[in-house]
Amino acid sequence: MSTTLKPAAPTATTAPRRLGPLTLAARQGRLEIRQFLRSRESVVFTMGFPIIMILIFAAIFDDEISPGVSYTQYFITGMIATGLMTVSFQNLGIWIPIERDRGVLKRLRGTPMPKWVYFAGKVIMVVAIGIAETALLLAVSVALFDLQLPGTAGKWFTFAWVSVLGVTACTLCGIAISSLARTARSGSAVVTPVALVLQFISGVFFVFTDLPSWMQQVAALFPLKWMCQGLRSVFLPDAFGAQEPGGAFELGRVALVLAAWCVIGLLLCLGTFRWTTRRDG
């Protein structure tokens, strides 16, 4: 007795589910945050350096620079701005050359992953670490140095937009300056001196109006000076605005300069960013 074999019924094949752009960005962001946290040196420097500097300078300088404003309070606002610059400009300017030199960027460019996802992951990492660092700085400053938190919604709003514009400008500039480093080792040598000079001339370590006029003019060309000035309007008394070079906090000019640097940084990124090292072509 012969049996007739029936052809197997066709099985439906399910196409792999395509991830949406938000999911891709979130996954890349989580990856970037994990990589950052695994580097203990980066965590200690980024999160600990501003706090260590506040403790040192508060122990050395305890005088008032204006009625009701101590040097420590003035210095803390500058260190908040410096912390935001460190996690964005300095970290990206150092780590992207390392990834480029190791061939990570070259491999990413050869995958189906959209190129923008890589940058979205960096932005998410910067925002997450920046928020954590700023919260830690504020907690230490309030607990140990009597820093007064903003008492109105308007000042919190100013704090938010100054931080967002400042971090955006510094992030874009960090991505742009990463292309200047020829090797992984040269990233720190390129970026760190720039960051240190900006801190010294932008009113972080010294009262800005005590600096030579030519130094003030140079600092006014870069974002950090305006980030510090915007944050002083949040944490220092309104009357202190008269001590600023323009006789006021000039928040309109702060917003204009930081927004201009966002545009400049974006143009520099588009024109200079490299996925491969020069030796790879």
Score class of each variant (00 low, 15 high):
Gly246Pro: 03
Ser233Met: 08
Ala169Lys: 09
Phe159Asn: 01
Gly93Asp: 02
Ile98Cys: 07
Trp95Ile: 00
Val123Ser: 11
Gln28Met: 08
Thr14His: 12
Val167Ser: 14
Pro223Thr: 09
Cys170Trp: 06
Asp101Tyr: 11
Ala25Ile: 05
Ile51Met: 07
Gly20Phe: 00
Phe45Ala: 08
Leu137Val: 01
Phe235Pro: 07
Pro67Ala: 10
Pro114Val: 05
Ala220Ile: 04
Val126Trp: 01
Val117Gly: 09
Pro7Met: 10
Gly271Glu: 02
Ala219Phe: 03
Pro223Leu: 02
Ser213Tyr: 02
Ser186Gln: 09
Ile175Cys: 09
Arg17Ile: 15
Phe273Ala: 00
Ser88His: 10
Phe45Leu: 13
Thr14Leu: 15
Tyr74Lys: 05
Gly187Ile: 04
Leu136Gly: 13
Glu32Arg: 12
Arg182Ala: 00
Leu198Val: 06
Ile56Thr: 08
Met125Gly: 01
Pro150Thr: 03
Leu149Cys: 10
Leu147Gln: 14
Pro21Trp: 05
Ser70Cys: 04
Ala248Phe: 01
Arg38Asn: 12
Leu136Trp: 03
Val167Gly: 04
Gly230Thr: 03
Ile124Lys: 07
Leu180Cys: 01
Arg34Val: 11
Leu251Met: 10
Arg40Gln: 04
Leu231Ser: 15
Phe119Trp: 08
Trp275His: 03
Ile96Val: 13
Val43Pro: 01
Ala220Trp: 02
Gln148Ile: 03
Met53Leu: 14
Leu55Tyr: 06
Ala176Leu: 02
Phe208Cys: 04
Thr111Val: 07
Gly103Pro: 05
Leu267Gln: 07
Gly265Phe: 14
Gly20Ser: 14
Ala242Gln: 15
Leu258Asn: 08
Cys228Met: 03
Ala8Gly: 10
Arg107Leu: 06
Glu244Pro: 09
Gly151Gln: 01
Asp280Leu: 01
Glu99Ser: 11
Thr168Leu: 13
Asn91Tyr: 15
Ile52Met: 09
Asn91Ser: 04
Lys122Thr: 09
Phe157Lys: 00
Leu24Lys: 01
Tyr74Leu: 06
Ala26Arg: 14
Pro193Cys: 03
Ile51Ser: 07
Ala259Gly: 07
Val140Ala: 12
Tyr74Arg: 08
Asp210Gly: 09
Thr111Leu: 06
Phe75Met: 11
Ala220Phe: 00
Pro212His: 04
Asp210Ala: 10
Ala128Val: 15
Ala169Gln: 02
Leu196Val: 15
Gly121Phe: 07
Gly68Gln: 11
Ala255Trp: 04
Val218Asn: 05
Ser66Asn: 13
Ile175Leu: 08
Val194Asp: 03
Leu231Glu: 04
